Simulated assay, not measured.
Amino acid sequence: MSDFWSGKRVLVSGHTGFKGSWLSFWLNKLGADVAGLALSPDTNPALFDQMGIEALVDHMIGDIRDADLVARRVAEVQPDLVFHLAAQPLVIESYATPLETWQTNVMGSCHVMQAIRQLSGRCAVVMVTTDKVYENLEDGRPYNEQHSLGGHDPYSASKAAMEFAVSSWRRSFLGGTNIRMASARAGNVIGGGDWAANRIVPDIVRALSRGKPIEVRNPDAVRPWQHVLEPLAGYLVLAERLWTSDDPVYQSGFNFGPDPQDARPVRDVVTEALRHWPGRWNDVSPEDAVHEAGLLSLDPAKSEALLGVKPRWSFEQTIEKTINWYRSVGDGKSAAEVTEAQLSDFGGL
């Protein structure tokens, strides 16, 4: 990576989460002055704690649904760059808490954008949504940035609505200002330190560590799996480009994902994981399950053409790195050291 980040003031919302912890750790290693705003970690264990992120950043607990708090935090930090990751990120949870999901993912994001409007200096902003923002017809085609937005479940729909809000703020308020804003669409991110409920990799790790079979609820669902470092690398490049260029082509939505032909069913994730951590799995797909997409694939051609961002690790490498992280940390190795080693292997340091 370039020395661009050294000394830059960077605000990361959602820095206590899985992706936020990886991003905050990486930015710290690149020499950035990182500040965070997020809820307390909601898993035990939590990657934020395992890697000691609190000691590496200007850490603040707060809810992005509180507009005044968000405004105060942005004014205090005066960021050069912002990565907005704070969200209610789970499809199944969104069925249980639809109002909270919409309040967090839409209004919380609006609070962040409204606060950023008050900055007078130059600021590059990456608003992170998801691959699930597209109206998914499950017709086998990979979705590019020109396809229609939509969403069946409350999570997907709220993130699509967030995309509309980002576009509205950019066109209504940011023209002629020093603020440059883009949205980043990536999903099905895996890697060491994710402990969320109802996600396949944490479910694999929890089962195998207890010597139990992995319970898989939707083995034929196809997703664009990628290691967490892949989209984060894209976010960093996009943010740097927003900072250094006034070209409006960068102030738009970007897909980050593997090559479309590398989208794989859940059963492939489980099978590949068992090559590195022996065990077994059972199909426990419930007949009355809430709706989740069966097929989803992204076209990342735009990010490759405009940003030069391409996948670095294959599907097999991604699973191997992920399982090795959990096994290494489970055997007593430092989570920060294992993470830094993987960052180095990825070429991020």
Rank of each mutant, 00 (worst) to 15 (best):
A301S: 14
F48Q: 08
T271H: 05
A35G: 03
L47E: 09
F315A: 06
R141D: 03
E76F: 14
E320H: 13
A124L: 00
A305Q: 15
L238P: 06
P311Q: 08
L11N: 12
A221V: 00
N324V: 02
R171Q: 13
R312D: 05
D268H: 04
D68W: 05
Q317E: 10
T318H: 08
A71S: 12
P202I: 03
E287L: 13
I64G: 07
S6K: 14
L274C: 00
S24G: 09
I53C: 11
Y143M: 06
R180C: 07
S2D: 15
G14Q: 05
V128Q: 12
L208W: 05
G253M: 08
L307G: 12
C110L: 11
G294Q: 01
V125F: 13
E316L: 08
E135M: 14
L85S: 09
A87T: 15
A301K: 14
D268Y: 01
G17Q: 01
V133D: 02
G175C: 05
P278H: 11
T43A: 02
F83S: 14
I319E: 04
M60I: 12
A273G: 00
G257S: 08
L236G: 04
E230M: 14
V269M: 13
Q103G: 11
D33P: 00
F315T: 07
H291M: 10
W26N: 06
W325E: 02
K333C: 05
H291L: 10
P311L: 06
N105G: 06
L85K: 12
G211I: 10
S167Q: 14
S209V: 10
P45K: 06
R264A: 14
D139N: 07
P154M: 03
I204M: 15
R206F: 12
Q118H: 12
S303E: 09
A124F: 07
D3W: 12
V91L: 02
S40H: 12
E54V: 10
D66I: 10
P286D: 11
D3S: 15
Y235K: 12
I92T: 13
A87N: 11
V216D: 03
R9V: 03
G193M: 06
Q50R: 14
M113H: 01
D42K: 13
C123Y: 01
V290W: 10
K302C: 04
F346T: 06
D66L: 04
T318C: 04
F83P: 14
G31V: 10
G176H: 01
Q103Y: 02
L99H: 08
S156D: 13
K19R: 15
E93M: 11
V10G: 11
A221G: 01
V82K: 08
G108H: 01
E272A: 14
V91Y: 03
T97N: 13
S252L: 01
P278E: 09
E340Q: 05
F164S: 11
V112D: 09
S334K: 00
A157F: 08
R65N: 15
A273V: 04
A124N: 03
I64L: 13
